[in-house]
């Protein structure tokens, strides 16, 4: 009786760590935690005029094409 109890307890303790658990971490994308940024056309020389800012940038974009600059 004692022997059977001993064996049962030993088996219970010895196999207690053999459970299988999923080891795949669940990934949760975080949200930005810092302070908010102002948009490029807000403040400064454009003072909220988004169209003017976009036009300035578009002009600079096209200035990179030397085929258009030379012809």
């Amino acid at each position: 009786m004692k022997k059977a109890l001993f064996l049962a307890l030993t088996a219970a303790i010895g196999l207690s760590a053999c459970g299988e658990y999923s080891q795949v971490a669940s990934y949760k994308p975080g949200d930005y935690q810092g302070k908010s940024d102002t948009r490029p056309w807000e403040g400064g020389q454009f003072a909220g005029n988004k169209q003017a800012w976009e036009a300035a940038l578009a002009s600079r974009n096209q200035a990179q094409n030397e085929y258009k600059r030379t012809n």
Binding site: P40, W41, G43, G44, Q45, F46, A52, W53, A56, L57, A58, R60, N61, Q64, E66
Partner: peptide, 21 residues
């Protein structure tokens, strides 16, 4: 915010480096 593109691209002598839209 000044309506300019990155300095690296605007400085590139052969216009190898392009930046923008």
């Amino acid at each position: 915010s000044e309506g300019k593109l990155p300095a690296c691209a605007e400085m590139c002598s052969t216009k190898a480096l392009l930046a923008g839209d």
